[in-house]
Design a protein around this nucleic acid. Structure first.
Lengths: 236, 236
DNA sequence: CAGTGGTCTAGACCACGGT
DNA sequence: CCGTGGTCTAGACCACTGT
């Protein structure tokens, strides 16, 4: 008679919420193995792929660990993951209500320093375009950028007027990358950097170093030194 | 006759790779709309859900933007996302080959400072457990941790011997959280912090501040100050 | 070997949101 | 309105890996 009451489809978000609830309530304590997908699908009254989707999403956050045959377990030491947004600096400044500015300080083409070449995975002495520039917010230094570009990977950049267009903007529009790495650290402002960022020497500087590649070919290495007080926030 | 040549199933990873290739090759330049899922599925000779999975994964990295009816576009200003692993400090030290140590410096229970209560979203003067501790690698200071715990959310922690078990380890095993935030910044080591971390006053310190919640209830706010030179790296 | 997650398929309905 | 992505289903085969 009430055969139409259970017509409402179960969404994978609902299953995710319920699984998270059971973990939080310690129905499934850390380290415990949870039922397999087929059983859960039967319990929830939905297709296995729906359960699979929900568990996959949770596992992506590090709270569940899944292995074939071994099943799904609540992570014992959840090395949680956070997703960090890396906005374009122009947008970041605009979002803070500032007016964005860009100033190229130096541009040179020549053999890259051995250390830089090594970090980019290039042979020592490879020819690199070296750029130093300031990103400004309301005219004040916001980020100092020290960048090396591999002209072999991005030949077009040699003919761009980089005083008008920031290298990042050009690369973003013309050289979508397929991989790379990001390193975050803190460094003390040396004399030159302090001068560029208009801050006290020795101030703590939040630094992001990015290397981007297309396939196996390195495109650019950029070190961005943020003005003191910069923070990066994300959800968990 | 060759009707069995196309039996190999197309994987979503293969489609992702091909879509990335077309973006990189500027077949689909930034800002352009790409064919809809149904058309791509026909072109690739697979089910629409396979295409959907591939495009969803790419969109999750920020390279594609998807909207119903408007279709899928190559992001014009790809605010790229990176996933950051937040390992348990004990594991992080062990992975670096060090022996892990933990030393509780201070423990007190009382009204939290207004600023801390506000950051946690609690009323001013809320009762908080305040912990100060050092994480050690091979006996040397590795991270100084300044933590506030909401005892109403985690009553069990008041009866734990925190000299033996780090608060983080206990919380991780007993209080799986459902949300929170993470803030990264650089700070200059003040006199006290320099003493604790055994570094020069004024050194640049990489700082992570985490707030975790269960539902809407804040559990803990922790500020972790890393020894100078600390770096966090992730893929893109 | 056999259990479990990973994936693909073909089809269906629906929610959103440009036009 | 109606095209597009978002999702669910029921079933199938496969890849990996612990036993």
């Amino acid at each position: 008679m009430q055969s139409d009451a259970d017509r409402a489809p179960i969404t994978w978000q609902a299953i995710r919420a319920e699984v998270l609830r059971r973990i939080q309530a310690r129905d499934w304590p850390p380290g415990a193995q949870i039922p397999n997908e087929a059983d859960l699908a039967r319990d929830f009254g939905c297709a296995r792929s729906t359960v699979s989707r929900a568990l996959r999403e949770i596992a992506a956050t590090g709270l569940l660990e899944r292995r074939r045959k071994a099943g799904t377990r609540v992570a014992l030491n959840p090395a949680r993951r956070a997703t960090l947004d890396i906005p374009v600096l122009r947008d970041e400044v605009a979002a803070r209500g500032g007016s964005y500015g860009y100033a190229l300080i130096a541009r040179s083409l020549g053999a890259g320093p051995p250390e830089i070449c090594a970090r980019m995975g290039l042979p020592p002495g490879a020819r690199l375009l070296h750029l130093r520039a300031l990103h400004l917010s309301d005219g004040a230094p916001y980020v100092f950028e020290d960048r090396w570009v591999n002209p072999d990977a991005a030949p077009g950049i040699l003919s761009v007027d980089l005083a008008q267009t920031s290298a990042n903007a050009w690369l973003v529009q013309n050289m979508p990358y397929t991989g790379g790495s990001l390193t975050l650290s803190a460094q003390s402002a040396g004399g030159e950097l302090a001068g560029l960022l208009n801050c006290a020497p020795g101030a703590a500087i939040f630094t992001m170093e990015r290397i981007t590649r297309v396939g196996d070919i390195p495109i650019t290495l950029v070190v961005q030194s943020h003005a003191p007080g910069h923070r990066v926030t994300t959800g968990l």
